[in-house]
């Protein structure tokens, strides 16, 4: 009889449990990833993903360290907010949200800059020798802000020089990028 009662209650217990788990996952720290996904549908934003292949580099002709460096770069994720309204409330809310996400413990802030009405920051996700993401945030007065995520797998600062060298052999022409410009509203 007693066992039976517990059995009857257990679906409720289970439900409460599932609900609790749901709450925990909902209240976890927001990430840039979820922000990007959310805002890609928002008309105030322009979002853009550039694969590393757009650089059009002939990999075969590269030195070994240049190949290694290039292989760690996966893609570039860009999110632009253009403020077309006189009312700055949306702009303020959005820029504050981004700053808040970037100030969570998962992101390491490298530097902050501010000049006149312009300000920005550079942060990263991952570890010092293996960056997962390099994040550049720049906000201009009342015009809007840009968020750039350089996404990769194990990007190491020692790869910077070989990477810049590899860029020299890029065959990407300006035309490859021109197609993207209307998307950015430029």
């Amino acid at each position: 009889m007693k066992n039976n009662k517990i059995f009857q209650k257990s679906p409720i217990v289970l439900l409460v449990f599932v609900f609790a788990i749901g709450l925990v996952s909902c209240s976890s720290e927001p990430t840039l990833q979820s922000y990007f996904v959310e805002k890609s549908e928002d008309p105030n934003f322009i979002s853009l993903t550039l694969p590393a292949s757009i650089l059009n580099i002939a990999v075969d002709s590269l030195e070994a360290d240049q190949k290694e460096a290039l292989a760690t770069l996966k893609k570039l994720n860009v999110l632009v907010f253009r403020n077309n309204q006189k009312d700055l409330s949306v702009f303020d809310t959005e820029s504050k949200t981004v700053v808040k996400i970037l100030s969570t413990s998962s992101y390491t802030e490298l530097m902050k800059l501010k000049a006149e009405a312009y300000q920005g920051s550079v942060s990263y996700l991952g570890s010092e020798d293996a960056l997962k993401e390099l994040i550049v945030y720049a906000k201009g007065g009342k015009e809007g802000f840009v968020l750039i995520r350089v996404m990769g797998d194990g990007m190491n600062p020692k790869y910077l020089k070989p990477f810049l060298e590899a860029l020299q052999s890029s065959n990407a022409s300006i035309d490859d990028f021109k197609g993207l410009l209307p998307d950015l509203g430029l």
């Binding site: 390491t108 802030e109 490298l110 530097m111 902050k112 800059l113 501010k114 550079v122 990263y124 010092e128 020798d129 190491n156 600062p157 020692k158 910077l160 020089k161």
Partner: peptide
């Protein structure tokens, strides 16, 4: 303003 943190310097050293 320009604020540069410790992690930036350790990255710079590794460049």
């Amino acid at each position: 303003a320009m604020v540069i943190n410790k992690s930036m310097f350790s990255l710079l050293a590794k460049f």
